[in-house]
């Protein structure tokens, strides 16, 4: 395989591995820009993965799976909102609860319903999101040297939720930056008292953000179970919710840089998979674990202010109390 082809294959795998991260990162971005810290991205993606796999298996339709995944994740997000917004509970504690609930419930229900140690039956045909071939992909590959190959290999050939994920980045960036709702969301994350003074409900804005967060996590979880894999596996999110959180921090809570961070972390993952068991001259057997640990280490270094500076929304993590 020549170099160009190898690069194209790695980039293709980067996109596939980034999609759940992108969805979860946008989800985290919405929540955190509204001042609600969310370490429960992982749990919401997990429950969405489970619900979507079950629904897709039962109905035989991947789109029904997507709907179920979004609903399950949204339900968990509202439980989170009830604790963290209405009852002003500690947001970290609530997030831990969300993660534990999802980790336990998915395995118990999966095991009780299908008896395969928590797995769901494997999905086939229309129950899975197939790969979409974009127009002119074959033609471009044959007729345009270089770029055509990348168009066919990297841009084309992903499942529908993958393109949806990129659309979510665009919408998130535009809505946050250019609309009244986006401005209010950002304001409620920086200075909720000012928003309250202007006569706008802090709680409903935050509920809105948390609900959007739930929907986006639902898309990410569904992609994992119904597009990337063919069914649910216990604990299949495997820390992706936390890598997404890392990407949000890495991007300083901004949408486009967050997309970049997700692609970077996806690329690291793709390279780690590619280098599994490969011996490089001078290094020997590549320690794949070192590459896998990189996103976490980079985030710690960034947070410590050694490269750049992380500036979270000012009111993030603080429940809002109206003055009495």
């Amino acid at each position: 395989m020549d170099l160009l082809q190898t690069i194209a294959v790695v980039l293709d795998s980067m996109i596939r591995l980034s999609i759940p991260l992108i969805c979860a990162a946008m989800a985290g971005l919405w929540s955190e820009r509204a001042g609600v810290v969310d370490i429960g991205l992982e749990g919401k993606m997990l429950i969405a993965a489970f619900a979507s796999a079950v629904a897709a298996f039962v109905t035989g339709s991947a789109w029904a799976g997507l709907g179920a995944g979004i609903l399950a994740s949204l339900a968990l997000a509202l439980v989170y909102g009830f604790a963290a917004i209405t009852w002003r509970g500690n947001q970290i504690v609530s997030g831990v609860a969300v993660n534990m609930l999802a980790a336990g419930l998915t395995v118990i229900l999966g095991n009780a319903w299908y008896g395969q140690g928590g797995r769901t039956p494997s999905l086939e045909g229309a129950a899975r999101f197939g790969e979409l071939t974009l127009p002119f992909a074959g033609w471009a590959r044959a007729n345009v040297p270089g770029l055509g190959l990348f168009y066919d290999e990297v841009v084309s050939g992903h499942a529908a939720p993958a393109y949806l994920a990129f659309l979510c980045v665009l919408v998130t960036a535009l809505v946050l930056k250019c609309t009244r709702f986006g401005l209010r969301i950002r304001a409620v994350g920086e200075n909720p008292a000012a928003v309250d003074t202007a006569g706008i409900s802090v709680a409903s804005l935050r509920y809105g953000a948390v609900a959007i967060c739930g929907v986006l996590c639902g898309i990410g979880g569904t992609y994992l179970a119904v597009a990337q894999s063919a069914g649910f596996l216990p604990h299949m999110t495997a820390g992706r919710g936390f890598i997404a959180l890392a990407a949000v921090i890495f991007a300083n809570w901004r949408p486009w840089p967050a997309l970049g961070a997700c692609l970077l972390f996806g690329l690291l993952d793709a390279i780690a998979i590619r280098l599994q068991g490969v011996t490089l001259p001078g290094i020997g057997l590549v320690p794949v674990e070192a590459i896998q640990a990189l996103p976490y280490l980079m985030t710690i270094v960034l947070l410590a202010g050694f490269i750049g500076k992380a500036t979270p929304p000012k009111a993030s993590g603080l429940p809002y109390v109206k003055e009495r």
Binding site: V79, A83, W87, N90, S94, A97
Partner: peptide, 8 residues
């Protein structure tokens, strides 16, 4: 965790 912590 939800009841004893967050919904205290």
């Amino acid at each position: 965790v939800l009841f004893a912590g967050a919904l205290d």
